[in-house]
Structure formats: C-alpha cells, structure tokens
Write a protein that binds this DNA or RNA. Structure first.
Lengths: 385, 385
DNA sequence: GCAAGATGGTTTACCCTCTAAAAAAACCAG
DNA sequence: CTGGTTTTTTTAGAGGGTAAACCATCTTGC
C-alpha cells in the first residue's frame, strides 16, 4: 500500500479520531472506548501502523502483560493554514498534532488572482522552511472574515476583502494541487480549538474574539454550529445598548449593536472623539492610570461584551466561553466589566457554571484553525463536520 | 418473530426514519436516499413488512414497472404523551404518525406519588378509550416545566411543581410497565414538531412559547440543543430591557429580563397595576379598541419578545422560528410589535431570511411532543437524540 | 395487440468487517 | 521455574453489505 494514498475505512477513522481526541490509548482501551472487539482493533491498528499514521509509544506496566500505548504520529501528515483575518496574512505549516513548523507573513492582497499567486508562492517557501515536516503535505485551510459557501470553497461575501463569490478554494487547490477548505475566521478558530486546543473534544463551548470587528462561533453537540445559511455565530449586531448606554447607529441600519461599542474600531473611534490615543494598549494604560474618558470607553465596551456573553450563555449553555482579547485588556476595566456584566445577567443554577476564559488575541490562532480544517479531513474523512 | 419484540438493526432504523421523515418512498428511492443497494433495501423492507411496521401503500405509475410506495403503519405502535406544563395535565394517546386517538385531562398533582398514581389510572382510561389504537402501546413521554436529568428520567428542579430530584420516569415506568421518558416542556414541544409537525426534518429551527412563563428550545444540526448542562434554550432571563423600557426586578436577581415583561404572568401583573382586566383575551380586546394602557403593556411585551427573537436569530441562524401564542395575540399589537422589533434588529443578508411563524398556544402541543419522545425511541432506537 | 424499451424489485454469489473464543505473548510474584 | 494475570494475535464464522444477473410489470410505438 502506498503510504500517501491513505484509504482509511470507517473503522480506521474511528481509531484515529479517538486517539486524536483522547490522547494515546492501548488497543484494549480502544476496544472498550469504541465498542469494538479486540480482534478488530488489532487488525485496524496494524494497518495504521503500517501506514505510519500511528506509532507504538511506551509500555505501561500493570499486573499482567504491559499495554502499549498508541499515539498519532505527528509526521503522518502536514497542513498549511492561512489566516486572511487581518493584514498581514499569516501562513503556518503544522503537523498532525497542531504543532507549528514554519511561519510566514504576507501582505493581504485584495485581487483574488494576485492573492492566490502570492499565497501559492508563500506555500512554496513554507515547504522549504519546514523541511522534513512538509513531507506529507495533505491539505490547505483558509480562514477569512465573511461568509463562506456550503461546500467551503467559495467566499460569498467579505467586506474586508471586498470579495463577492470568489472561489478561492478551487483556485488555490488547482494552483497547488492540494485539497483546500475555506472557512469563516471565527469558525476556523473554534474548529482549531476543538481539534488541537485545550478544549479539544469538548462538545459544547463558544469562542469570541475582539478585533477590528467582533467574531463568534459555537461548538454544539460536538459539531460546529453553522445554522441554516451559515450565519450562526453572528454576534456583532446583537442588541446590547441597554439603559445607560448611548445607542450609536450601526452600518447594519440599527442602533445599539455590539460592534458599535466593543470592537477595536468602535473603541478607537470613541477614543478619537474624546481626543485620546486610538491605540488599544495606550488606551488601556490610560484607563489603568485613572483617565476618566478612557475608563468610560473601555468600561462601556467591556460591559456590552458581557451582556452579549450572557445572552450567549443563556441561550446555548456552553461549558466554556473563550474570549480572545488583546492582552492589555485582560486585566483591565474592559475585562472586569465583561466578567461582572456577564455574571450578573446569568441565571445561576446550583452546580452549574459556564467558565469564561480570556486568551490572548493572536492571528496565529486563525491560521492554526485554518490548518486544522485540512487536518480534520485527514482524520475524519469526507464526513468531517 | 414476535411482532412486539422488534429487534431492529441499524439498517432497519435507517429505512424507518427516512420514511418517517420524508414520507412514503419506494424501495428504489430509499436505496438512492440512503446510499444502500437495492438488494439490501429489499431484504430490510421485507423484515419491516413482516413485522407490520411498514405497509405497501399505492402503486405509482411511470414508464416502467410501477413503484410501490412504502409507508410507516400508523398502528405499528402507540404512545402516551403527558403534559404537566399547565394545570390541568393533558394526556394523549397517539399513533406512530402523531395522530391523536384519545385525550384526557387530569388535575396536576404536586405530590409525586399521587401524581404517578393519578397518571397511571389516566393511562388505563386512555387505553380503554383508544381501543384498537392502544394495541401496541410502546412507551410514555412526560413534558414538564423545569430541568431534567441527562438520563431523562428525573426531574431535577421544577418550580411549578415544587419538585427537586423527583424520579417520575422510573416511578411511572414501574407502575405501568412501559418505558418512560421525561423532558423539559419546551424541548418536548420542539422534538414533537421535529418528528411529526409541519417543520418535520428541518435541521435548524427554534420554538418559543408565551405562557405563564416563557419557554424556548432549538433544533440545531438536526438535533435538540441541550447544552452542557441541559440548560440551553433558556430565554426567560435574556436581558431585553433596552432604552425606553423600565427594567423591572426579576426573581433571578437581575433587572430587565424577558419574563418580567412578556410572560402572561408579567402582562397580567402590569394590567393589574393599570387597573385593567388580567385576562389576556380581554386585554387584547381593549388594546384593539385603543385603550392606551393596554396598548402600551402589550406593545412593550411584544417588543421585548421581538428583541429576544432577534438575538436568537442572530446567534443561531435558524430557518424558522415558531412562536406559540394565545390566538388573541397573533393579530394584535403584541404580535405586530414582536415582528417589527425582530425584523429591525436582524442583520439582513441577500437571499437569506428566517421565517417567523405564529401558532396557537395549546397544551396539546406539549402532550403530543411528550408522546413523540417515546415514538422517537421506537423509530431511532437507543441512540435517539 | 404485440414486441421493444424502461424501470422496479428479487435472487444469487461473493466480499468485507466485525465477533467470539482460543491461543500466544509478556509481564509479576513467589 | 511455575502459576496467575493481562494484553495482543490468531482463527473460524456470522452478519450485513454489494454487484450483477434475473424476473416482473408497466408504457410506448408500430
């Protein structure tokens, strides 16, 4: 059997995904976990070992014969992840564990043809830089702000790029010869977290990020929540301007939307109106030093995020909400207001509590998530979520 | 093979659920639909015909040999559905198509033992009344307001009943000898809709109802959204008191929750404060006649529902939202305010629109949903979602 | 009316996957 | 070393699936 042409059966994929979720397991453990017989596991594992997808790791000594723990080989496949979430674009080369082996930044181009050309060249550089790690390059993922078609090839709309119905997936696949998946930035982020991040395997959690705009995505029943038309997760236009906030008009035509208060763009605009620096770190410093306008702007922004988070928690009951924020905002009035407002608007039940975590905002997260799209296909096959 | 002891394989259930979803189909259509060979379908269908679960319905004439459409036999099984959503409790006897064959009302008792006894006796009466339709009684479903354990047997908390950790499922199952499932009222309602209602098979929709309290549930990716701790769908405490509304204190400790404005209880309270009749029909009549306070109360209640609906639509992107309302409210200021407010807070995209439907509020819906819990088990087997 | 063509359903032979049970392997304890 | 224990492999067989040929039953065109 040719190593690259992995024709994996459903049984193989069950094992692969179980180990990739739960970490290294022995054959017998897998049998119990998957409800298959030891005989089946044995045969399936043999195939996966032959194909260099799994490896026998260490012996675990107990009472009888020691069990050998089986792990997914990191070098079984590698992937390219591209984030077009911000300018510059970030390209990563990752392995099957999600580890990054090479990194590249490129200017984010608006013209689709030029963008494809630039990305394809970037991928070539990554392959060189990655060396051995790029051996079994198996796919490309692209994360971008905007809506993506159901087949995950075409960007339907992206205001950031000015794109409408740009089939960048097929274009890049043809240019590079590698299967390519396109995904909304927030969706890519949470899918990466679900496959490789600390919350890997959690069936119900949400992620939010505060950037130029505000993004959000949900894992529900263990799967990405897309909604009827792929628009699930949109939280930017949640009505949050409650009593005491001035409701600003939004580009969507309404007033009091979340993104008119809490996005970095909105915060910058408010700072400019108050004749304060628009840089978020400087603003956070001023707030920490007690500057009243800075405090007010960030408090308002954080509170609005808190209300939206509370709405989210009430409606979806996730186990965790991860909020990706510029690190200067974590331990600031923004972060505290977010936490307080969220806490106070959640109906508490005994023994049940959604954890809200802050995490640093970094463009790498989107690129890693994009890479995980291709990894997901490698692991789960055509029926990947 | 004993007809009652249906030991159905995954293949059998695939066929059963496909027909139950999509309506009557021929063998060849099923083969295409399920991706199985005609040979497999033929064998599986034979078993189901022998067990009197399917029947050959009509010949459909085309160019070649006519196809025989296969339908699920309504009398293949029957189910009891119990709604404890309101007082009185409603009990229904339904068949496998969701058709009601007998109906009974009972006082809703607070004492768990008495409630089980009363329900068990009620089920006996239903069986007599149902006659032939009760022949293959296969299970019981119970819908109640409150939280239900993960195994769907125990009511964890229900303020309406004053219950805490009442294992009514096991109790009724032991008393009647029939498998029993317990479910939150809103969840039962939407599961019934998903299996038997007009939106049957839709993978992404939500239902809301306005009763004494406000309930909500979501179908997402074709499955019920339960959340991490079974609390998904809670919308009663969504923060909706935006500028211009007075934010009333809520029993949950916050202010401005949806249920402080839009529930029938809240509407009644507001009416009493305004020295108006608390009956919802009378209030709607007064509003229709132009009484200012009645107009204001219902407008505010409807607007708040509209905002909550908009939050829901933005976050989940459902294809439909069904709002169950007292019929006097549909074409009233309440209904219009709901629609307007929802419309105005949704970010519109071209070609994409969530349909909002009103439907009559009736306790039968909850009982039918409860019955569908047992039907779901019959059709989908132990892995029923 | 009757062959030709088209389509639906069934039968047959076979393959693949999974299972149960026995056997083999690998370790610990005395 | 021997017996006990647990993991893994081997082996024989059952179950569920398929492809392909076959049969059944209609419409259509002459």
């Amino acid at each position: 059997m040719v190593p690259g042409s992995a024709t994996l059966s459903a049984g193989h994929r069950q094992i692969l995904s179980a180990i990739s979720r739960e970490g290294p397991r022995s054959r017998t453990e897998l049998a119990g976990l998957l409800g298959l017989s030891k005989a089946s596991i044995s045969g399936l594992v043999r195939d996966l070992l032959e194909q260099n997808i799994l490896c026998e790791q260490e012996l675990i000594f107990g009472i009888g014969r020691p069990s050998v723990s089986l792990a997914v080989r990191a070098d079984a496949a590698s992937f390219i992840g591209i984030s077009l979430q911000q300018d510059p674009a970030v390209l990563l080369l990752t392995d099957l564990h999600g580890t990054v082996h090479a990194r590249l930044e490129l200017p984010r181009l608006s013209d689709p043809d030029e963008a494809v050309e630039s990305l394809a060249n970037g991928i070539q550089s990554l392959k060189k830089e990655g060396g051995d790690a790029a051996d079994r390059l198996s796919g490309i993922g692209i994360a971008l702000p905007g809506f993506v078609s159901r087949d995950r090839l075409t960007c339907i709309t992206s205001t950031a790029h000015g794109w409408k119905n740009v089939n960048i997936g097929t274009a890049l696949a043809e240019r590079t010869g590698l299967p390519t998946w396109v995904e909304n930035d927030a969706n890519a982020l949470i899918l990466g977290e679900e496959l490789f991040g600390p919350l890997r395997g959690s069936p119900d959690f949400s992620m939010l990020f505060v950037s130029h705009g505000i993004g959000c995505a949900h894992i529900v029943n263990g799967r990405l929540l897309r909604g009827n038309s792929g628009g699930a997760g949109e939280i930017s236009h949640a009505p949050v301007a409650i009593d005491g906030f001035g409701a600003l008009p939004c580009r969507c035509g309404n007033k009091g939307c979340l993104e008119t208060v809490s996005s970095l763009l909105a915060i910058g605009n408010a700072a400019r109106r108050a004749e304060l620096p628009t840089d978020i770190a400087e603003l956070a410093d001023l707030a920490a030093a007690g500057q009243p306008d800075a405090l007010s702007i960030l408090h308002q922004a954080g509170s609005a995020m808190g209300i939206a988070t509370a709405q989210l928690i009430q409606m979806l009951d996730p186990s965790h909400v991860v909020v990706m924020l510029d690190h200067t905002l974590h331990d600031s009035v923004f972060g505290h207001a977010l936490m307080n407002e969220a806490e106070s608007h959640i109906l508490h039940r005994t023994g049940v509590k959604t954890m809200i975590h802050f995490r640093d905002f970094a463009p790498e997260g989107f690129a890693a998530g994009a890479a995980s799209l291709a990894a997901r296909y490698f692991i789960f096959g055509p029926e990947a979520g």
